[in-house]
Lab assay of single mutants.
Amino acid sequence: INASIYDEIQQEMKRAKVSQALFAKVAATKSQGWLCELLRWKEDPSPENRTLWENLSMIRRFLSLPQPERDAIY
């Protein structure tokens, strides 16, 4: 996982035409506020920051699903 995940998140929300609230809920079981802060600060993903790493790993797993599967989840 690297910093490009933040751009991938924004691209996916645009592509699927979903809100931050919906993306946060389905991709990371988090709130819109959490995702907003995540995208604002764009912390460097590092395994040392375990909570951030685990949350980004969950999002990465969601983004790695085939597009039709992600669309069905939304």
Rank of each mutant, 00 (worst) to 15 (best):
I1N: 08
A3D: 14
A3E: 12
A3T: 15
A3C: 11
A3Q: 14
A3I: 15
S4M: 14
S4T: 14
I5L: 07
I5P: 00
I5T: 01
Y6Q: 00
Y6E: 02
Y6C: 04
Y6N: 03
Y6V: 04
D7N: 11
D7V: 12
D7H: 08
E8S: 04
E8I: 01
E8K: 06
I9A: 04
I9R: 02
Q10V: 12
Q10R: 09
Q10G: 09
Q10S: 11
Q10L: 09
Q10M: 03
Q11A: 09
E12H: 02
E12C: 03
M13D: 02
M13I: 13
M13C: 05
R15E: 03
R15T: 05
R15D: 06
K17G: 14
K17D: 14
V18W: 03
V18G: 05
V18N: 05
S19Y: 02
S19N: 14
S19E: 06
S19M: 02
Q20H: 06
Q20G: 14
Q20E: 13
Q20L: 15
Q20R: 08
Q20W: 06
Q20M: 11
A21H: 15
A21V: 08
A21G: 13
L22N: 07
L22W: 07
L22S: 09
L22K: 09
L22Q: 06
L22P: 09
F23D: 03
F23V: 01
F23G: 02
A24H: 01
A24G: 04
K25D: 15
K25C: 07
K25G: 07
K25N: 09
A27T: 09
A27D: 02
A28W: 02
A28P: 02
A28M: 08
A28Y: 01
A28G: 06
A28I: 07
T29P: 07
T29L: 10
T29R: 13
T29A: 10
T29C: 11
S31M: 04
S31V: 01
Q32R: 15
Q32W: 07
G33A: 13
G33N: 13
G33Q: 07
G33V: 11
W34L: 06
W34H: 08
W34P: 01
W34E: 12
L35C: 03
L35G: 04
C36Q: 10
C36T: 15
C36G: 15
C36K: 08
C36E: 08
E37F: 05
L38S: 03
L38N: 03
L38G: 00
L38C: 03
L38E: 03
L38V: 12
L39M: 11
L39Y: 00
L39T: 05
R40L: 09
R40P: 00
W41A: 14
K42Q: 11
K42E: 11
K42M: 07
D44N: 10
D44A: 14
D44V: 11
P45E: 01
P45I: 06
P45C: 08
P45G: 04
P45T: 04
S46G: 08
S46L: 10
S46T: 08
S46Q: 09
S46H: 15
P47T: 08
E48K: 15
E48F: 12
N49P: 02
N49S: 11
T51C: 06
T51P: 11
L52F: 05
L52G: 02
L52S: 07
L52D: 06
L52T: 02
L52P: 01
W53M: 13
E54M: 12
E54G: 13
E54D: 14
E54W: 11
E54A: 11
E54N: 12
E54C: 05
N55P: 12
N55H: 15
N55I: 11
L56A: 01
L56M: 06
L56N: 05
S57W: 12
S57K: 14
S57A: 13
S57C: 15
S57T: 10
S57M: 09
S57P: 03
I59A: 01
I59G: 01
I59V: 14
I59W: 04
R60K: 11
R60G: 06
R60W: 04
R61F: 06
R61D: 13
R61Y: 09
R61E: 07
R61T: 12
F62W: 06
F62R: 01
F62N: 04
F62H: 06
L63V: 01
L63N: 03
L63Q: 01
L63S: 03
S64H: 07
S64W: 08
S64L: 11
S64V: 07
S64M: 10
S64N: 14
S64Q: 14
L65S: 09
L65Q: 10
P66R: 08
P66I: 01
P66V: 05
Q67M: 12
Q67E: 13
Q67T: 14
Q67V: 10
P68Q: 10
P68N: 07
P68T: 09
E69C: 04
E69L: 08
E69W: 06
E69T: 14
E69K: 14
R70V: 00
R70K: 04
D71N: 02
D71M: 03
A72I: 14
I73R: 12
I73S: 10
I73L: 13
